[in-house]
Amino acid sequence: MHPVITLVAQRLALGLLLLLAASVLIFIGTQILPGDVAQSILGQGATPETLANLREELGLNEPAVTRYFNWLFATLQGDLGTALTNGQDIASSMGKRLGNTLFLASVAAIIAVPLAILLGLIAVRYQGRWPDRVISTVTLATVSVPEFLLGYIAIYFLSVKFRVFPSLATVYDGMSLGDKLYAISMPVVVLVLVVLGHMMRMTRAAILNVMQSAYVETAELKGLRKFTIIARHAFPNAIAPVVNVVMLNLAYLVVGVVVVEVVFVYPGMGQYLVDHVSKRDVPVVQACGLVFAAVYIGLNLVADIVAILANPRLRHPK
């Protein structure tokens, strides 16, 4: 069999194994910690009867291993259980929110990825001169501010002072795509700013690394234009690290979404998770944690596989 297929298959298997291990970790994180889950859900004022009832409902009287496998098999069959707080089916309430979150994240990614790579290329082209300095300083500033503060700065200036965009991202069924895009304009701006900095800085570093190799020097000595050298010689060789950077940042975007959704009151997965963490609704938190971990592991896996596919030494073995 072609070695690339073997390698990719190995990565896929490894990814699945990692996801399984992550599910164990999430389960341990919520179940076997010091203290009783039922006690910490109900707080100090719990009576023995309510405690016993909740333990029964959560299945806490069974051993942890049994509970883990019950949970795992139910999850594999698409049954995420019911929320403790309102008794609703988790899978169905999560479905629409997951769609919303993916919509928000992909709009942000479609804008951020080309922009970051372009800015990275410009920064390398004018390395050490003012365009590089300006881009680097501005992105350092956006990286140094947490997402939620970037969100409020954006609200303060864009929604309140200049009234360009709405400050709350309200979406509902039956909205046209244009309306939806307008509604999520603010969270998209914030998410783009958040990942742009990291992505641009890492792209710049990856290309600069390639720029030091002998063939780039040869191209320079041939008298090629600086931008041609970067676009034709350096960039193709930097694709693997750049794709890696992009994927890592998309994974980061998935996490950034959690906070940004809370800021803009956007009905997505992040808000769902945060709401239920404060209500100590363990089944919902587990389900959300698993979904986030799956997306994160999936994106990292894609990064790995693209890096393999982008390497000609692996594609054309001797």
Binding site: L18, A22, G29, T30, G35, V37, V277, V282, V285, Y296
Partner: peptide
């Protein structure tokens, strides 16, 4: 590797949902 396969914020939220 395993611990880093879950984003820190998500891991912290999961743990804080049961810890005081």
């Amino acid at each position: 590797d395993l611990m880093m396969s879950i984003p820190s914020l998500i891991a912290a939220l999961v743990v804080l949902s049961v810890m005081p």
